[in-house]
Design a protein around this nucleic acid. Structure first.
Lengths: 109, 109
DNA sequence: TTCTATTATCGTAATATTGCGATATAGTAT
DNA sequence: ATACTATATCGCAATATTACGATAATAGAA
């Protein structure tokens, strides 16, 4: 049916999956990497940097904003985007905790 | 068009996005968490644990297997799944590197 | 062999995502 | 006001994902 059964899973599982989803596209990875590098929040240069249409970039930016990972501040006619340090860290911690939870006891099947 | 333009991005970006995609579903998170907890590789108990149909679980297991995160060994009529420690670590390292790359210089917009 | 149990695959329906042209919106400049 | 610039949103087409019933495939038991 194409509809994820969120009710079945724990809130943690749903949240973690949603975090991953926000990062599950190369364009969004590229946007974030660009923001990491540029620090000084750049905006629609992304349209030139990546080879995607302005509408497409805007859509990805919206998703990243919904995910909380970036903030946008209006600066004249343009919009200045930057990473939200707090949310970025939340992601980092949550995802790291997931990966750390597994310790290889080497006894597989 | 619904087709991700992989050619535009670097291999690293595509790989990282694909890693995230493999984990971007609560059922797959749940499956992995169960395997982490059980260690002693359990198989289709997952169908009972999670409230999803057998066909659905099998499909998610296939995706995790394609992602390299899990291995399946035939054990009688059932299949014994377990986490692949090597690939798990690769994911951990790659994703951690992504998150570590950002250091908040606090000068946002 | 026949029956049973377990897992994989197929086919299909419902929904989600991706990408972009066209258009709207908002700010600035003339 | 008009013109220009930069973003956002709308609407659509193409493709992907999710879920599951039905069916196949495989291994062991009777």
């Amino acid at each position: 049916m194409g509809l994820t059964k969120t009710a079945i899973f724990t809130e943690r599982q749903n949240k973690l999956a949603q975090m991953m989803k926000a990062l599950a596209h190369p364009a969004r990875i590229a946007i974030l990497q660009h923001l990491v590098k540029a620090q000084v929040c750049i905006c629609g240069d992304l349209v030139e940097e990546l080879g995607l249409a302005q509408a497409t970039i805007s859509q990805h930016l919206k998703e990243l904003k919904n995910a909380g990972l970036i903030q946008g501040t209006i600066d004249g006619t343009s919009v200045c985007y930057c990473i939200d340090p707090k949310v970025w860290n939340e992601y980092k911690v949550a995802i790291d905790a997931f990966f750390v939870s597994y310790v290889n006891k080497d006894g597989c099947c």
